[in-house]
Design a binder for these strands. Structure first.
Length: 514
RNA sequence: GGCCCCGUCGUCUAAGGGUUAGGACACAGGCUUUUCAAGCCUGGAAUACGGGUUCGAAUCCCGUCGGGGUCACCA
């Protein structure tokens, strides 16, 4: 039997890191065994803007390279893959359950149910449906239905049974049916509920392995009861621990990652044209996509949460993951997500990326920031290439090119006030800048090696350390204190622009002086 | 509160009866250095606690404590 896994997001508008990890595990298992990875959309909870809320999720999965074999846009033998389009199937299965006497209509009003729930809460008892409608005679059911009374469909759950199964990750687990009660399968409006729709779909789509977050563990017992009622062999279940917040075992949420949302990163998003309220949170995949992470790095980093290859391997490229992924090596306990480690891994992947791919990957970000045009002409392309080369290992994510080297692509320099204060507004600086301008103007050829000679020569002549010349030169030409090596920086900038900027900086300090 | 799951450095993890409990991120110190990175070297850092079983326990059993999940006409 071929392995079939599925990922079943509901269209919420974005992909959460924890959800992505679940998707990766499902995808990896299918690929490992040459099976199929199905994408199904759990959209029974009638949401207004379905399409817009779905697209970012599909885009995220595509970005990661988690291609699905069946699902939206990919027809297959078990479609449709939107639950909202499968209502007929659910109706059929619901009917089957009723005709077998495994489910019954319940006419209790939401108010009545709410009262039962309140009572349970006050008595500090877990809530379970009383089963009041279960005993209704068939004729009475018929009468009420014909009278147009709204009703939900409930599963008849036999009391005092212990349901057991062996979870691939957790091992043997069990639960008493007394803790479950007659759960609702279909809403009064005819829409199926999660547990019911999931079983119908997993069964009819021939899913062999259900890999999902541990928060679904209690649902699994209900689902097992449903498989039994349908007389269908259930799939294997693997409940993976949820992804926790850094330094905690609490489920990851937006709030937990606030400290990773640095001012510096927010500034990157703003440079890319995001409005402040649109800036994604570090719990969302979008955050990493737009900061310029590589899909392979994110895939690797997330796959390592709760799963390991062995006792030492951190870098697990896509192909290696596919060849070695196994459910058996998934941890039982929650793993906290560590953005720092993901960042480190990203640096490793970026470092190994061939130059031309770095260039190609950088271009969309420069365009979004309005620093280069579209299309990019050959001279701009070669400028980008030179900047990236000069950046070397400093470039960890694509937006680093904007932060460390944005000034290469602008006519006017934005002088960072702090840099000016710290480096340029010093007594010796006017002299240094003036001489630099003079010497560089006559320099031929204008390359890094010769620029270095000029700078070091000048330092010696003035009887100061090289840093006293280098730092002002950097700030004067780039406006900032960080960036590539200053000699290459000036070379790439070119003589004309370097001189202009020295001029401007000089004016700036002299004006400050006066 | 009932039921269920989980507990190895701050974090990700390895070891599944016998190791000085290993690696990685992060952190600290040093070297290098024109900034920022990178690189190299060094360091601190863990089996939640208490009982058993055993020649021997992180590992098996029991209890305690702690964390988490779940108890919807959400998924």
């Amino acid at each position: 039997m071929t392995v079939r896994t599925r990922f079943a997001p509901s269209p919420t508008g974005y992909l959460h890191i924890g959800g992505v990890r679940t998707a990766i595990f499902n995808w990896a298992l299918a690929r490992r065994f040459g099976g199929q990875f199905v994408l199904r959309i759990d959209d029974t909870d009638v949401e207004r803007h379905r399409e817009e809320a779905l697209e970012p999720i599909l885009a995220g999965l595509r970005w990661l390279g988690l291609h699905w074999d069946e699902g939206p846009g990919v027809d297959g033998p078990h479609g449709p893959y939107y639950q909202s389009q499968r209502l007929e199937v659910y109706r059929e299965f619901a009917e089957r359950l009723r005709s077998r006497g495994r489910a019954y209509p319940c006419f209790c009003t939401p108010e009545e149910i709410e009262r039962e729930r309140q009572e349970a809460r006050q008595a500090k008892r877990p809530y379970r449906y009383s089963g009041r409608c279960r005993a209704l005679p068939t004729q009475e059911q018929q009468r009420r239905i014909e009278a147009g009374m709204p009703y939900v469909l409930r599963l008849k759950v036999e009391p005092d049974r212990v349901i057991r199964f062996v979870d691939v990750v957790l091992g043997p687990v069990e639960r008493n049916t007394n803790d479950i009660g007659d759960v609702v399968l279909v809403r009064a409006n005819g829409m199926p509920l999660y547990n019911f729709a999931t079983v119908v779909d997993d069964a009819s789509m021939q899913i062999t392995h259900v890999i999902r977050a541990q928060e679904h563990l209690t649902n699994t017992f209900v689902q097992l009861l449903l498989y039994e009622a349908f007389d269908i062999t259930p799939p294997q279940f693997a409940h993976v621990p949820y992804v926790a917040a850094p330094g905690s075992k609490a489920k990851l949420s937006k709030r937990h990652l606030e400290r990773y949302q640095t001012e510096e990163n927010v500034a990157r998003f703003l440079k890319l044209g995001f409005k402040p309220e649109e800036v994604p949170s570090p719990v969302m995949l979008d955050y990493y996509i737009h900061l310029g992470y590589l899909p392979d790095a994110v895939l690797n980093g997330l796959a390592r949460l709760g799963w390991s290859l062995d006792d030492r391997t951190e870098k697990i490229p896509r192909q290696v993951l596919i060849e070695n992924f196994s459910l058996e090596r998934i941890h039982k306990s929650p793993a906290s997500f560590d953005p720092d480690k993901l960042y480190w891994l990203q640096g490793e992947y970026m470092r190994e990326l061939p130059l031309e791919q770095k260039v190609a990957g950088t271009i969309p970000f420069l365009q979004r920031a309005g620093l280069v045009g579209d299309p990019v002409d050959e001279s701009t392309r070669s400028l980008i290439r030179r900047v990236i080369e000069a950046l070397g290992d400093r470039m960890k994510v694509f937006t680093d090119v904007i932060v460390y080297g944005g000034f290469f692509f602008k006519d006017e320099v934005d002088y960072d006030p702090k840099a000016v204060q710290k480096v340029l507004l010093k007594e010796h600086v006017p002299v240094v800048l003036a001489r630099l301008r003079e010497r560089l103007a006559g320099l031929e050829p204008f390359d890094a090696a010769h620029i270095e000679e000029v700078v070091r020569g000048l330092a010696e002549e003035l009887g100061v350390g090289a840093g006293k010349v280098i730092h002002p030169l950097r700030v004067a030409t780039s406006g900032q204190t960080i960036g590539p090596g200053v000699f290459e920086l000036v070379e790439i900038l070119g003589k004309e622009r370097a001189l202009q900027r020295l001029e401007r900086a000089l004016a700036l300090v002299q004006q400050e002086d006066a």
